[in-house]
Simulated scan of single mutants.
Amino acid sequence: MDGASADVVRDAIERGDALSGIDGFAGEVDGRLVRDVVGRYPLFSEADDPTAWSFDLRDLSEPDPIPPGHARDESGDEKLWTLPNPTPYEDAERSIATVREAVVASVDAVDCDPAIAFSGGIDSSILAARLEGPLYVGGFEGSHDVDAARSAAAALDRELHVVEFTHADIERGIPALVEATGRTNPMDLQIALPLYLVAETAAADGHGRLTLGQGADELFGGYAKIANAPDDHRVDADTVRGAVRETIDSLPRQLERDVLALRAAGVEPVVPLLSDRVIESALRLPGELLATEDERKIALRRACEFLPAEIRHRDKKAVQYGSLLAREFDRLARRAGFKRRMSDHLERYVESIAAGDR
């Protein structure tokens, strides 16, 4: 069992607790494969044989992920848990205080001070302000993430390790990540590559665990598409709370990719902002404390008064853009002859590298 003991998971199954305080798990219990409701740990079985399973898809010939919140055995998949949909708190101060208590308790519970993936945004700054592990940021020269991380580290009076990416890193990282994640989608790889490259350096420096701020954007309304609901074509929901729920539902597939990428780099991810108590606090937020046209992650920003104001109110770019990796990824593809006018030029570039054609 990954993330918890079998006895603890068995109790959660018997009680029907979707958020039982275990903070994620996956594995075999009483002859069934089970995975927590948010999918914080990946788990696969052979598509035609659920008795053959692994945490690593590379161990299987036709890996089929266990759906989050489900159990699987030879009779098929059974849904055990559904993420709660509680009524939001009416009192704003209570909502913010609940978020603050959950975030502080979850981050402070991290032991052994693992290394921290640090971009200078509010999510990773929460970790850096409360944990003592070394800070790592990655990007190409002149990237937004490196500049933002430097200024935030200075504001927090922390030393920063900068991992400067190269084209060679992209070219060697692509086949490693295709093998580790089973994905050739360019967007997946552009997101995973910065994490993988930073994690490689942290592992080489002797760190076996890497703390990340994963989940905060999904839980607390960090995306423009959430603030623009229902007018954004990228979401089906007609409310901000509904749009947040949609993005939370996207987490299992994202986490599967990221965990597999980080493990391939030699570290185990630590994600305190995806603890059960943080998830519970986020699910209680009304739409006006999630996102508006003018501000995102409103409750989280107000809850983290221990951060300097310049960090609390800072916007952040997605990692593939903030690190400039997406730009250089495209540049390498075009140099290799895969022009933008070609259909799926980036995926064709990925497939050529993964096949060893370059």
Rank of each mutant, 00 (worst) to 15 (best):
residue 185 N to M: 07
residue 58 R to K: 04
residue 158 R to G: 10
residue 76 G to W: 01
residue 280 E to D: 15
residue 227 A to S: 15
residue 273 L to Q: 10
residue 70 H to V: 05
residue 124 S to H: 04
residue 238 D to C: 03
residue 344 D to N: 12
residue 76 G to T: 03
residue 44 F to R: 07
residue 59 D to T: 09
residue 245 R to T: 14
residue 64 D to W: 11
residue 80 L to E: 07
residue 229 A to N: 06
residue 235 V to I: 13
residue 227 A to F: 12
residue 289 L to M: 06
residue 101 E to Y: 07
residue 34 V to S: 04
residue 357 D to W: 04
residue 304 C to H: 00
residue 80 L to Q: 07
residue 230 P to G: 11
residue 231 D to L: 13
residue 324 L to D: 14
residue 333 A to M: 09
residue 75 S to V: 10
residue 6 A to M: 02
residue 292 T to F: 08
residue 232 D to C: 11
residue 309 A to V: 09
residue 301 R to I: 08
residue 347 E to H: 10
residue 319 V to R: 00
residue 18 A to P: 02
residue 306 F to I: 06
residue 342 M to F: 15
residue 243 A to I: 05
residue 197 L to A: 03
residue 291 A to N: 02
residue 104 V to L: 13
residue 148 A to C: 09
residue 264 A to K: 02
residue 192 A to E: 03
residue 163 V to E: 06
residue 305 E to M: 05
residue 60 L to H: 06
residue 293 E to R: 12
residue 168 A to L: 12
residue 309 A to F: 02
residue 155 A to T: 12
residue 104 V to D: 04
residue 221 G to R: 03
residue 242 G to C: 07
residue 345 H to I: 00
residue 279 I to R: 01
residue 177 L to F: 00
residue 284 R to Y: 11
residue 60 L to T: 10
residue 346 L to K: 14
